[in-house]
Simulated assay, not measured.
Amino acid sequence: MKAIIIDDEKRARRILRTIIEEECLEISTLFEAENLVDGVAIIKAEQPNLVFLDIEMPNHSGLQILEFFKNEVINFQIIFTTAYGHYAIEAFKLSAIDYLLKPIDVIEMKAAILKASTQIKEHFIKDKLITLERNFEQLALNKIALEVPKGIRFVSHEDILFFEADGAYTKVHLQNGKTELICKTLKHFTEQLSNKSLFYKPHRSFLINLKYMNEITKKDGLQVIMSNNKSIPIARERKEEFMHIINTVF
């Protein structure tokens, strides 16, 4: 059986290759690619039976693989390798597509390969991938992905008090009192949540959840007191717009 590992992280590819070569003798040929475009080229040229596919990669997500096989038969099985947490795992289960959580567990990998090898002759992978995409879209409707050191944490919009700029990073203040430091700029989250009326940017350094405002005070200029007692300044140029929103919404 031939297989390919598609993952932008060299270390992740090396670890998975080592496990496969030591534990999975049924895989005789193993290719590698560091992005989806190169991976698809190898798939079309070499026709592997099994694809180990990371989801979070630069330029193209692993979920976009269908875009490269629109009018072609997909005759290989996919096992997603992912750092996603609990919520995303439900998306995999509902779509009946196999996944391996990073760090990879040898026993789970063997089971996934065995399952895939029995399904290689089936031709339902496109339907499963479409279902998986829809599940992730549904997941994204009410949750936001936060790339934390141990992986990716999905957090409900309802659980976010506010975002605070910290240089090239963003502090995400949560309802449970915890704060996550994310390696994304505030602009990233502002654009991502631009169509969510719950969130408003009253100042260049803050994006707040209007649901968790406790008080508006004129002390030291106009400020919002959030439910955790944090004072958020309202920029002078945003004052009129902000008060209009308050009068309209509340």
Results as ranks from 00 to 15, higher is better:
Ile160Thr: 04
Glu158Ile: 09
Gln192Arg: 09
Ile225Gly: 09
Ile125Lys: 03
Ile89Asn: 04
His157Trp: 08
Glu180Arg: 14
Gly62Arg: 07
Thr185Ala: 06
Lys110Ile: 05
Phe124Leu: 15
Gly62His: 07
Ile79His: 08
Lys121Asn: 15
Lys143Trp: 02
Phe163Tyr: 15
Gln77Glu: 13
Arg14Phe: 04
Leu207Thr: 00
Ala165Thr: 10
Glu191Cys: 07
Lys219Leu: 13
Gln192Glu: 14
Glu90Gln: 11
Val40Asp: 00
Ile27Asp: 03
Glu90Ser: 13
Lys2Ser: 10
Leu101Ala: 01
Leu207Ile: 04
Cys24Ala: 15
Val73Thr: 14
Ala33Gly: 11
Gln192His: 04
Phe69Val: 12
Met109Gly: 12
Ile6Glu: 01
Pro149Thr: 10
Ala45Asn: 06
Cys183Asn: 14
Val224Thr: 00
Leu100Lys: 10
Glu21Asp: 14
Ala168Gly: 07
Asn229Tyr: 00
Ile97Lys: 08
Pro58Asp: 07
Tyr87Ile: 10
Ile4Met: 02
Glu237Trp: 04
Ile246Tyr: 09
Asn75Ile: 14
Ile246Glu: 05
Tyr87Glu: 09
Gln192Phe: 10
His244Tyr: 09
Gly85Pro: 03
Pro58Gln: 08
Thr217Ala: 11
Thr82Cys: 13
Lys93Arg: 09
Lys44Gly: 12
Thr29Leu: 09
Thr18Cys: 06
Lys2His: 01
Pro58Val: 10
Glu32Cys: 10
Glu90Asn: 14
Leu174Trp: 15
Ile55Tyr: 06
Leu63Ala: 06
Asn214Ile: 01
Ser227Asp: 10
Gly167Ser: 11
Phe52Gln: 01
Ile246Lys: 06
His123Trp: 01
Asn49Arg: 05
Asp105Tyr: 03
Gly62Leu: 11
Gln64Tyr: 15
Tyr84Leu: 11
Pro202Asn: 02
Met57Ala: 06
Leu50Cys: 02
Ala235Met: 06
Leu186His: 08
Pro233Gln: 02
Ala45Gly: 07
Ser194Cys: 00
Ala116Arg: 05
Leu132Pro: 00
Leu66Ser: 08
Leu198Ile: 10
Asn195Thr: 12
Ala165Ser: 15
Ser95Trp: 10
Phe69Asp: 02
Ile232Arg: 03
Ile4Trp: 05
Glu241Arg: 05
Asn214Cys: 03
Ser156Glu: 14
Val148Trp: 05
Leu36Arg: 12
Ile130Gln: 12
Glu32Ile: 15
Ile89Asp: 03
Ala140Thr: 04
Asn228Tyr: 01
Gln47Gly: 03
Ala41Gly: 06
Ile89Met: 11
